[in-house]
Write a protein that binds this DNA or RNA. Sequence first.
DNA 1: GCCATGGCTAGTA
DNA 2: GCCATGGCTAGTA
Length: 105
Amino acid sequence: MQPFTAMVISIIHSIPPGKVMTYGQVAREAGSPRAARQVVRILHSSSEKHGLPWHRVVNVRGEIALQDDESRFLQKMYLEHEGVQVHEDGHIDLKVYQYIPSHTG
DNA sequence: GCCATGGCTAGTA
DNA sequence: GCCATGGCTAGTA
């Protein structure tokens, strides 16, 4: 596995229940600010294999970005189960729920 | 070539 | 809505 991929997987694993990160934010934390789409690709291909909390990643506007209805429903359900309020249109208030990792350690 | 982005702008009101 | 972006992989030679 490539270092960037390992970083992304580790970062996504670190998102606590009830919090979310954005694709671009994960990319920045992994050291590649413009690699948001690569984060998408990793989620797409490695979520199951690595047991990633894939439902805790949303786009920069706080929206569920998945395409198909079944996955959207599943993501909404998982998030609400963790106490995240998902509005009817599938958006989340990032001001409340975005996870900001501390870099002090 | 993939991809579940993101930042910008044009167009509307 | 458009389109530049980028790490990775499948597919070809």
